[in-house]
Amino acid sequence: MTDAATVRDVAALARLTISDQDIENATAEFNQTLALFDALSTADTTDVAPMINPLDSAQRLRTDRIETLVDRAGLMQNAPASEQDYFLVPRVLD
């Protein structure tokens, strides 16, 4: 069982907030999902290698050559706030 404080800590890691009103329900749902995972412990995985890629294939690397796929202006059009060619965020340093 995981308690509300742990769920809040996980939320902070994920850059999410859970309100006081929602924390009880969120913790119950969290534990309900973790209970679903209990079944995993019944599987004997001694000496079984983890499967990261379903084809067990290694990731291919492309030639190290600069390619322009999309234009900067098109990308910047989606920025919530920008100035010239830069994304704007609240001041980090005083």
């Binding site: 995981t2 996980v10 890691l13 969290f30 995972f37 995993l40 983890p50």
Partner: peptide
């Protein structure tokens, strides 16, 4: 985020990748 966290990684994420195989 929880299953990838250091304290849970082996118990959940790694185990699931093994069961996946």
């Amino acid at each position: 985020t929880f299953t990838l966290s250091a304290a849970s990684y082996d118990q959940y994420f790694m185990k699931a990748q093994q069961v996946r195989r």
